[in-house]
């Protein structure tokens, strides 16, 4: 074709053509790849690694976990057994950096030993509510129809009772059986619907994607499509919600203990200590402030982690920053 080029026709005066060297054209749809592969989770990890918020919260959480597992590393004073009324509401002394409670117990030691309670309640609650929530949400969202109607209504019923109120009832009834497992069950039984709702709406979004239809056309079974394609693409927000629920569960345990329907006073629990200290708030605020601080910092570290994860996992949230 190029051999029989037409003679150049005369162009009208307002016909402008850019010089070729100023506007070089490249090939159509040329494949150009970055050095490293990337998908949602790889990108999220790269994004997380750059965030100070992620490292600070992770460090705090690891520290909290370490304290919960080995409180003895940080103090030699037992939390309960070496309490002397002579030390009641006493100021800090050597070896007892935060002073003493009304019973004369070492505040520092009580805080350290209370960590494992908060953390175990948090972990058991999210284990319960994530497993239940993921199963309920996944089946409701993916299978739809009457499965969805039944499961979503059940979820609505549990969601309609604010979980702390529900836990108050359960714990009042089971006053003789109060322990970490029971309080976790009481909270977890009413927190799963939020996980289920988040997952369900994600799945509703994902399951209409063409890649799901393509998988059906290939001949994959419904269940394998759910497990291989739909769940991995909809689980990201659940990870965020779970981190934030862990924080909420820790607060819930402390609130219940504070109200007196949580763990019995024989358990080391920040909520219990805060509750006991409230009468002395004017005379000895430290008895109240230090356990509150421990509680707040622990909760904050999970909140920060949740926020960092949200920013990394949700491209929409990243755009909002």
């Amino acid at each position: 074709m190029s051999s029989d080029q037409k003679a150049p026709t005369v162009l009208s005066p307002d016909h402008y053509v850019a010089a070729l060297d100023e506007s070089p054209i490249s090939g159509v749809d040329v494949v150009s790849l970055d050095e490293k592969p990337s998908n949602l989770y790889i990108d999220a990890w790269r994004d997380l690694r750059r965030r100070p918020m992620f490292w600070i919260s992770s460090a705090l959480i690891i520290f909290v976990i370490f304290v919960a597992l080995f409180p003895g590393v940080f103090t030699n004073t037992p939390p309960n057994d070496e309490c002397f009324l002579s030390n009641s509401l006493g100021a800090p002394t050597a070896g007892h950096p935060l002073g003493f409670t009304k019973q004369g117990c070492d505040i520092y030691s009580r805080i350290l030993h209370g960590t494992s309670t908060s953390l175990s309640v948090g972990l058991i609650v999210i284990a319960l509510s994530s497993i239940t929530g993921i199963i309920m949400g996944a089946f409701a969202g993916f299978y739809g129809g009457w499965v969805d109607t039944v499961l979503s209504r059940i979820g609505d019923i549990f969601f309609s009772i604010p979980y702390i109120l529900a836990a108050i009832v359960v714990m009042s009834v089971l006053s003789e059986h109060r322990n970490v497992w029971v309080i976790s069950l009481a909270i977890g039984a009413f927190t799963w619907p939020s996980t289920a709702r988040v997952l369900r709406s994600e799945i509703l979004r994902v399951k209409n994607a063409d890649f799901v239809t393509a998988a059906t056309a290939i001949g994959l079974s419904r269940f394998r499509i759910l497990v291989r394609h739909v769940l991995p693409n909809s689980i990201a927000p659940v990870i965020v919600v779970t981190t934030l629920s862990l924080a909420a569960a820790i607060v819930a345990e402390a609130t219940l203990s504070f109200l007196g329907v949580g763990l019995p006073s024989t358990f080391m629990s920040w909520g219990n200590d805060i509750s006991t200290a409230q009468v002395d708030i004017r005379t000895a605020p430290q008895t109240l402030i230090y356990p509150s601080l421990a509680l707040t910092i622990t909760v904050l570290s999970f909140i920060l982690l949740g926020e960092a994860l949200r920013d990394a996992l949700d491209p929409k949230a990243r755009a909002l920053r």
């Binding site: 026709t9 162009l11 016909h15 402008y16 053509v17 850019a18």
Partner: peptide, 22 residues
């Protein structure tokens, strides 16, 4: 094309006698 004008002018003339390779 890529943030630049590569060709402009009377429509029919451009269709019949495009000059720029793009």
């Amino acid at each position: 094309y890529k943030g630049k004008i590569v060709e402009s002018g009377p429509s029919v003339e451009i269709l019949q006698n495009p000059q720029h390779p793009y």
